[in-house]
Amino acid sequence: MLHITDVSLAQKWAETLDIGTRNELYHLLLRVVDNAETQNAVNETIHIADARETAQIARCADGIRVIGLDTLISQDYAAVFSRLLSKSPNAELCPGNEFGCAAALAVEFVQSGGRRIAVSFMGLGGFAPTEEVLLALRVTIGYKPGLDLSVLAEISAAYERAGAGKAGERKPVIGRKIFNVESGIHVNGILKNAANYEPFSPETVGLRRRICLGKHSGRSAVVYKLKTLGKSADAESIGRLLQEVQAQSARLSRGITDTEFEGIVERIL
C-alpha cells in the first residue's frame, strides 16, 4: 500500500500552481506516486487543530505551512484566513479532510487571497482532493482556464495501476459514472443543452457522458436510444417501449443495458 505523506504533496502542489501545461501536470502528479515513499518531511511545518492557533502562527516567519484545521468549516473561516494572511501573505494551507470539507476550505482560502494550498490527488492521506480543488477553482473563479484537465482521468487510472487508490464510481470530478444520466427531466434538459445539468463538460475532465435507460427514464431517452440503433417509432410505440423499460428496471432493481434495450425493441416494435 502506497503511503503519501502530507508534506510531500504540499510541496508538490505548491509547484503545480505555477505550471500551465498538461504534460507538466501529468508528470508532476505521477512523480508524486513514484516518489511518495521516499519523500521526507520539510521544515517549517506546523500541525494545527484549533483555529485560534493561527494567530500565534501568524507571528512566525512568512511562508509557513498550516496543516489541519479540519473543523474550520464550522467556524468563521473567512476571519481566520484574513488574520493569517494579513500577517503571513504567503502562508500555505493544507486543510485536513476529517470532516469532508477540505476541498471547500482550500477554495475559500484562495478566494480570501491565499496563494498557496496543499492538496492530494483523490484526497489520499486525508487532504483536499487535487481534482476537486482544480475544478472548483476553474468553475468558480475561472482559474487557469487554459489548463488541460482531461489528463485527470488518465492520472486516476495511473494511480489505480500503481495501487495508490481507486476512485469510486461517483467520486466528484474523476468517478467513472458521474456523467451517466437517466432521469427523464435531466436527459431531456441535457439533450437540449448539456449545461442545463452539467457543471462542466465530461470532456473537460477526460470522461464521457452516457445516457442510460431505467425506471426514471422519459420519452427523450427512448427516442435518443432508438436513434443510436438507427431506428425511429411513432409516439404510441415510444410510450410502450418506455413502459417496458421502466417496468423491467423496477423488476431488476437496476438500469437497463443497451443489449437489453435492443431486446425490448425487437419484441415491441
Binding site: 468549516i73 464550522s74 470532516f99 469532508g100 470539507c101 476541498a103 471547500a104 476550505l105 477554495v107 483536499a128 482532493p129 476537486e132 480543488v133 475544478l135 472548483a136 468553475v139 468558480t140 466528484p172 470530478v173 458521474i178 457543471p199 462542466f200
Partner: peptide, 16 residues
C-alpha cells in the same frame, strides 16, 4: 450536489 466536492461544506454553511 457534490460535483466539486463541496456538498457537505456548503450544507454546513447553509445551516450556519
Amino acid at each position: 450536489h457534490n460535483d466539486l466536492g463541496c456538498a457537505a461544506a456548503n450544507s454546513i454553511a447553509a445551516a450556519r
